[in-house]
């Protein structure tokens, strides 16, 4: 993971072509959701050790936002999907 990422659009590329945003799990709340929901979204993270989903953007390639599903201890990557597709799954 930390060396190569398989972009679903561009193929396997070195890590330095990507920009990493962070946890992909938080979903932006509705505008009128509670203060707690908004604080949770912007500030709080489960931050588990193990399997996580993370937002990476292929800035030096297709510029698509991707969801990289991986283990943050072993650095094994399970799946890389386009974020728009991953979002459909979540909805």
């Amino acid at each position: 993971m930390a060396s190569l990422i398989s972009c679903p659009h561009c193929g396997t590329r070195p890590k330095e072509e990507f920009f990493i945003r962070g946890d992909a799990n938080p979903v932006r709340p509705a505008p009128m959701a509670t203060d707690e929901a908004w604080n949770d979204y912007v500030h709080l993270r489960v931050n588990p050790r193990g399997r996580i989903r993370e937002h990476w953007q292929h800035v030096a390639g297709c510029r698509r936002w991707l969801v990289v599903e991986r283990d943050n201890f072993t650095h094994e990557v399970f799946a890389v999907t386009d974020a728009a597709k991953a979002g459909e799954g979540a909805r």
Partner: peptide, 18 residues
């Protein structure tokens, strides 16, 4: 920092080169 979430006490070569 290497830039991604990690609990492994080891980094990647690209960052080291940078």
């Amino acid at each position: 920092i290497d830039g991604y979430s990690s609990y492994a006490q080891r980094g990647n070569l690209a960052t080291a080169e940078h």
